[in-house]
Every structure is written in structure tokens, then in C-alpha cells.
Simulated scan of single mutants.
Amino acid sequence: MTTALPSADPAPVSRTAPRLRLATPAEPVEAGGTQQLTAYLVLLPADTDPAPLFADAGLRPHIQAVAIDEVPTPPPAPARVPLVRDGVLVDADQRTAAVDGAELDLTFLEFSLLAHLMERPGQVYSREQLIHHVWGYDHVGDGRTVDVHVARLRRKLGPAHRRSIVTVRRVGYKYVPRA
């Protein structure tokens, strides 16, 4: 029988001295039988007693406290260098794109598509590869979704740069900076 823990308003967590506590039911095992134990990992500030959290559920917690001296923080991601290809700039950190200094108004997918194509100029990507890498899933349907986004992106790049996104017939698309 599993008993749900009562909901409680969490106390504010101290980032300077967090503590790790493990609470499990402390009921004896019957002779010849087995007992199913359920363990709960409860993270609380060091000065908070977890017993009241379990009291309403009829559980008697066994508490083991482990001190964590500091909260590890992941290092910041290194800044990515903006891509610049023949007057077209894509800044992945700022999620901005510009053509000859004029900022483009791109949707999330248009920006992602342009950035992906510009990362490896000249590499041909099939529609399926673009769906997988840019959209992030296997698209159910036809490849027209990619075609529509490429057409919109070409319009926004303008007449001087629209030919940079080249159609490779029966395959897909590639980015080729103008000569």
C-alpha cells in the first residue's frame, strides 16, 4: 500500500548551506515475510525537520542527513562566434540575423533553418535531415513544410542574398554565399 505524502508549503531553500535528507518508513519486517519499502528523497534546508511531512501519512521516517557544502553551478556555456557569410550575419547567442547590417525579422524556425544551413556552407541537407535537425522531430507528412519555410526565408533575405539558399533538385537545400 502506497500512501501519498501530504502537500506542504515548501520552506525557502538556502543556497548557501543545503542539506540532503533521506527518509524511509521504519516499520519492522514480519517473521518469514517480506516488506516493501518505499524511499523518499527529501531535500530541505538544514534547520527543517521532515518528520511532520510524513506524520499525516502514518509514516515514521528514518532520517539520514548529508551536508552539502556548496551548490555546484554549471560553468557558463562558451560564447559562440556569430556566423558571417558574405553580408549575412547569424548570432546564435542573441538569436538575431542581419543582412548587410539590417536586422531581419525571422520566426523561430526561420532563424534556426538559416543558422543550420550557414553552419556548413556547401553541405546539402535533405528535407528529412532539416526536419530532424531544425524542427527536432520526425515530421509526419510531406517535405513541403521545409519548402515553405525556405521560400519565406529567401523573401526575407532579399534579392541580393536569396540565391544563397540553393535548391538541390530531388535532394534538398544548401547554403552557398554569393560569389
Rank of each mutant, 00 (worst) to 15 (best):
D56K: 11
A65F: 01
L83W: 00
L104K: 05
D138P: 03
L113W: 07
A46N: 11
D105C: 06
V66C: 01
P159D: 15
L59Q: 09
L109R: 13
S7F: 07
P28K: 14
R155F: 09
H149V: 11
D91Q: 02
L104I: 07
R178G: 06
V140L: 07
V134T: 05
D56V: 08
A39V: 11
L104V: 07
R154K: 15
R15E: 15
V84R: 09
H133D: 15
P10V: 12
P6M: 09
A102V: 14
L106D: 00
D100E: 15
L157H: 09
A77E: 10
Q129I: 09
P177K: 00
A98Q: 11
I131E: 10
P6R: 11
V171T: 15
G58P: 06
L89D: 03
A151K: 13
R19G: 05
V88T: 03
I165W: 03
V150E: 01
R19S: 08
K156Q: 05
S7Y: 08
T48M: 05
R85C: 03
R152Y: 06
R15S: 14
V168R: 08
K156L: 03
A98H: 03
L106E: 01
R163Q: 14
D69R: 06
I165Y: 00
T3D: 05
R163S: 15
I131N: 10
V88W: 00
R21E: 13
R120K: 11
V168E: 04
V168F: 04
Q35M: 10
M1S: 14
T107H: 02
A67T: 15
R144I: 03
L20K: 06
V84I: 10
T34F: 15
P72K: 06
E27S: 09
H149K: 13
E103Q: 13
V71D: 08
P18E: 13
L37V: 15
L114A: 05
T145N: 14
R152D: 07
A4F: 07
P18I: 14
R154L: 07
A26T: 03
D142Y: 09
Y125V: 03
L104E: 11
P74K: 03
V166N: 06
V42G: 02
V99I: 08
R80W: 04
L130A: 02
D86E: 14
D49R: 02
V42W: 04
S164R: 13
T24C: 11
P74W: 06
L157N: 08
A92T: 06
L130M: 00
G101Q: 09
K174N: 04
P28F: 13
S14F: 05
T73M: 08
F108P: 04
V134D: 02
K174H: 09
A11D: 14
T145K: 15
V84M: 08
E119H: 14
D93Y: 05
D9I: 12
Q64I: 11
D69C: 01
L109G: 05
R60S: 13
